[in-house]
């Protein structure tokens, strides 16, 4: 495997992590969606590059699914949702941006330190990819945890899923069936969450999940 192929794979995977950080400090919904769309497009590029480098044409299908679904359709639908529901554009975060970014850095350090050591036997591309993928997964979780807004949580979840796909393509020989089923599960999760959003909005006039807690009559 040439140096250029490794460098490109490294660059694309690294920019995925960068986009996760970008998403982490967004406090407005439209820009969060934009960042997500960009991350998905980068994912598609990373997967397509892997398809070329590994000579695995089925990975191209994954890339196409990623572009059409996650970079185009889902962001468009989310924008439509925000407009039609009249959702408040700013996102309430749980803690300040600074501590969140710091936590994100710790997480990336953790996943790098862990994965680079754990995968010493594997080839270089897989090692880097898996280390970046775990960072993306952890950052996705962090996005979900630090957002009070349901739309923000949905985007965090789908960003997490981007990390899973990155890990899957990095490892050689991941079967097509697994990728497709993962893609579909995300789609279904998206649909379900979208429906939920509508229902929540209808009942409570907000998508702030704190309203749900109030409705359950429980203490914070």
């Amino acid at each position: 495997m040439g140096a250029i192929s490794f460098d490109l794979a490294h660059l694309l995977a690294g920019s995925l992590v960068l986009m996760s950080f970008v998403m982490l400090y967004q406090d407005r919904l439209p820009s969060l969606i934009n960042a997500f769309a960009l991350q998905s497009a980068l994912l598609a590029a990373a997967v397509a590059w892997q398809a070329l480098a590994q000579r695995a044409p089925h990975l191209l299908v994954t890339a196409v699914i990623a572009v059409t679904l996650k970079a185009i359709i889902i962001p468009l639908v989310l924008r439509y949702l925000i407009r039609s529901l009249g959702i408040h554009r700013t996102i309430e975060t749980v803690s300040g941006i600074g501590p969140t970014m710091l936590a994100g850095m710790v997480l990336v350090a953790l996943s790098m330190g862990l994965m680079l050591r754990a995968t010493e036997a594997s080839n270089v591309i897989a090692r880097e990819d898996i280390a970046f993928a775990l960072s993306v997964v952890l950052l996705g979780l962090l996005i979900m945890v630090t957002r009070r807004n349901a739309v923000g949580q949905v985007i965090g979840f789908m960003s997490l899923e981007n990390g899973l796909i990155l890990a899957g393509t990095g490892a050689h020989g991941m079967p097509m069936v697994v990728e497709i089923s993962v893609a579909f599960s995300v789609l279904i999760a998206f649909i379900v969450i979208g429906i939920f959003l509508f229902r929540i909005r209808e009942r409570f006039d907000t998508v702030d999940v704190a309203a749900l807690d109030r409705f359950r009559g429980e203490r914070q």
């Binding site: 952890l138 999940v209 429980e218």
Partner: peptide
Amino acid sequence: FLTIRRYLMLVFLSLV
């Protein structure tokens, strides 16, 4: 009887 976000937090923290 935790909130959704706290459950997420629990999952996240235990993973970390």
